[in-house]
Design a protein around this nucleic acid. Structure first.
Lengths: 361, 361
DNA sequence: CTACATAATGCAATCGATTACACAAACGTA
DNA sequence: TACGTTTGTGTAATCGATTGCATTATGTAG
């Protein structure tokens, strides 16, 4: 009943061809000023809107970008997406959101869907499925993305694949820093909540933690390292196990804010004072960490910047008309926010320690 | 270099026409079993993927749905989007995300962009720009969406427009309930942090609050109602002003969790005990409300369900091939989570009060 | 062996916009 | 006047998939 107006409709009204209408609308010089004016007026009057699908089909550019994340309702991913959307909005790109729920099959399907939809690029954070499962199929489809010359950019959770750019934070360095900070606060039996080690980011956090211990003359103690999921319950359970050790720890560097919170709640229940008896540093700078009775020290992963940077790297790939392949590994400098959960002395300011925002290529 | 395979490529290989390939791939009965098998095999071998753009152009269905929200990095909107995505994923629709940042022009542009992109529907939460501004242009474009027969569904922040469906929660009822709960706790001088009254949801919350007071013999006191933004700082400022009154309040029902938090922090600073001296109920069930030292009572807006329901209503519109116009106003039952910030007695269980999930049409 | 139904395939238009190429008119110059 | 140049338009192909209609091949009945 209410059909959309096309350039053919405009052409018919003005008794010219669609080609001329198209030229008039696109600032093509091969058109007279008079008809251009006429076309523009008529187009406005008829409420013409360019059909992007037709354009996309012809040009091969859909101006859509796919973003794949485990889930969108986590502050970190939502903020990254916000950054991506804001940056791409300025360049007329739309953002299509897909969630994997950490499921391998979903990840595979999402990539497929996005390819079918002819997206101009895929920005993704790899899912965290158990390494036992045979992920070869997903690796294969990722290879196809690359073969098809669809720009693929990893953010945060990356895979190491030749020719694929990525944007991450300095997990190793900031973990080193966080551990060093705990040592400086007088802690000597520092535990670590580690994440899935098949993901680089979590492996790097563990490595930074280890190195900080070694550099400060503290022996690495395997029993102080517990793998935990990113949840309050997991953190409570993990800390319970730790406190049953013969020589229980006096601090935790957790790779998850949620697990850190669970640990704090549990420790308080058992009557420990924080930070006097026990220090805790989390990871993620979730909003609640700053709203707690006792604000929690944590690592800010600068998600907004990560999103913007990921979008920028994508745009560079798009603009790269030359034959030179781009492969950029951007490492953003994250921030260690020292708050009361780990601040005993006044030796360190109650503030951001490392806020030099830097970019390494 | 690595062109995508089309049905023409398959046709050429098998020395048949693209029409036959298409028929084979689409389970069209007008094709012999032998060629169908041949085509399917060859398609798999050549790694054929249907080009959705071509399909969309021809059929007029893009299988994309636009979602417009003020911002994505709030727990509420992110959760709604999660619900939408999950529901639509099962029906092969993609979700395109747009943010307005509460800006009128952005809202207008987003609607335009989505229409150009030929989305099959638009799901939106209206932006919160000052009512002074002349929003007639946005109203006009919304009318155009309706004229074009593009399904439009509002969620949470709706406008009252004929022919437009919406999904909201029972703001009035739950606000009534929350206020009544505060009265039952022995509070008699109950203040309210209200939001922008040009948005229905905030007007309804104020109305429910008022009615609960009246029904319980408490006079409505204009000076107990303060308009606040949804931020910690705004809440602290607002409560400061309230406490300077000759007869300061002994409770707050806030239409924002963040403002409620600000109020609590400020009150504690001034030495008041919560809930003994002062009770607080928030709105939104932000994650932090449950993680606080003193968990905050708050209204859960059931965002996941809201997202799923919004998607379902959209699907009904799409499936509605008849000439009958659908206009659905779904009101979801939200949940009042009573926690320690407002629980003095044990008369009410420390639990969800209203968890009968219901749907009214 | 003809006639006619049925099955399988090809042909060509369609969706809407862009653009290389062809062509015409208008102009300038020798 | 004749020829080249500029300028503006039209023609038709293209992007990839689908589908109504025409056409061919096959089968069946009379």
């Amino acid at each position: 009943m209410n059909k959309k107006t096309t350039i053919y409709d405009i052409a018919k009204v003005l008794d010219i061809t669609a080609a001329s209408v198209s030229r008039a609308l696109n600032n093509n010089p091969k058109i007279s000023e008079s008809t251009r004016k006429l076309v523009l007026e008529t187009a406005a009057k008829m409420n013409y809107k360019q059909n992007k699908l037709a354009l996309a089909l012809r040009s091969g550019k859909s101006y859509n970008v796919g973003v794949i994340v485990p889930r969108i309702d986590s502050n970190f991913f939502a903020s990254v997406i916000r950054g991506i959307e804001e940056e791409l909005y300025a360049h007329k790109y739309n953002v299509i959101i897909c969630q994997t729920h950490e499921d391998e099959k979903r990840e595979f399907e999402n990539i497929n869907t996005l390819l079918n939809a002819q997206v101009d690029g895929i920005l993704m954070s790899v899912s965290n499925f158990t390494s036992e499962s045979d992920s070869s199929e997903n690796d294969r489809i990722i290879k196809r993305v690359i073969e098809k010359n669809v720009p693929l950019i990893f953010f945060d959770r990356k895979k190491n694949i030749d020719g694929v750019s990525s944007v991450t934070i300095n997990d190793y360095d900031v973990s080193y820093l966080a551990t060093k900070h705990l040592i400086e606060q007088g802690c000597s039996r520092i535990a670590h909540f580690k994440g899935n080690q098949s993901l680089e980011i979590f492996a790097n956090r563990l490595a930074g933690y280890k190195q900080a211990l070694l550099d400060n003359g503290i022996a690495f103690n395997e029993s102080y390292v517990v793998q935990t999921k990113s949840s309050v319950e997991a953190g409570a359970l993990a800390v319970n196990a730790l406190m049953k050790l013969k020589n229980p720890p006096d601090a935790i560097f957790s790779s998850s804010d949620f697990a850190a919170l669970g640990a704090i709640q549990q420790l308080k229940k058992e009557g420990l004072r924080i930070p006097e008896d026990f220090c805790v540093v989390g990871f993620g700078n979730e909003p609640f960490t700053d709203f707690m009775e006792l604000p929690m020290s944590t690592v800010d992963q600068v998600p907004l910047e990560m999103g913007k940077m990921t979008a920028k790297v994508f745009l560079e790939h798009i603009d790269n008309t030359g034959n030179v392949k781009i492969e950029k590994k951007v490492v953003l400098t994250s921030e260690l926010n020292i708050r009361q959960s780990s601040l005993r002395s006044n030796s360190q300011a109650l503030e951001v320690v490392n806020n030099k925002k830097g970019v390494k290529i």
